[in-house]
């Protein structure tokens, strides 16, 4: 009787995962799916498999899924030299519109002795934008990857600001 109940629950939770659109709810539902599957293994005389499924499926898997989802929502900017309020407001507005979390890192922290050039930064540190200041022309330069979807949105938004220029780089140099 209780076995049939768990079987029907398994089918329903699978349907709810297929119909769900929010990533975080998906991970929690998958954790519940693993627990129900583990109890079904136990009812079918396989307690060792149930133990492995509980340890891997409902503890380890949601952890790595949550790490991957948190990587998805951060927008990393590497700054070089001066950093004034105007461009900071611009970046905050962009992240507000696109639902991203802004993370600013200093170039001194990124460049250690193994860094050879500016293009290697994209490959090693997963940086989305490099920000620096051109003193003679008096505008800020945002260097982005051409392949990235965010670059076009950033370019459209920067047309309103005369002191901000968006530069797109080729991607061939950044690929391994």
């Amino acid at each position: 009787m209780i076995k049939t109940f768990f079987l029907v629950l398994l089918l329903f939770i699978t349907l709810s995962i297929v119909l769900q659109k929010n990533n975080k709810i998906l991970v929690v539902l998958y954790s519940g799916f693993s627990l129900i599957a583990a109890s079904l293994y136990f009812f079918n005389h396989a307690p060792d498999v149930a133990l492995a499924e509980i340890a891997v499926g409902s503890a380890f898997m949601p952890l790595i899924f949550l790490i991957a989802i948190s990587k998805q929502t951060t927008f990393t900017v590497m700054q070089q030299g001066h950093f004034h309020m105007e461009v900071k407001d611009f970046l905050y507005d962009f992240c507000q519109i696109e639902n991203l979390k802004l993370k600013i890192v200093q170039s001194e922290d990124v460049f250690n002795d193994e860094a050879k050039g500016i293009y290697g930064v994209f490959r090693r540190q997963d940086i989305d934008v490099i920000l620096n200041y051109h003193p003679k022309m008096q505008h800020y330069i945002l260097t982005c990857k051409q392949s990235n979807v965010m670059t076009n949105k950033l370019l459209e938004m920067s047309l309103k600001y005369p002191s901000i220029k968006v530069v797109r780089t080729k991607d061939i140099d950044t690929m391994d």
Binding site: T14, V18, V27
Partner: peptide
């Protein structure tokens, strides 16, 4: 992400 989760569900169902 959903595709990867569906792969995991497929594997759990086969088990």
């Amino acid at each position: 992400i959903k595709t990867i989760i569906c792969f995991n569900i497929l594997q759990a169902a086969v088990i």
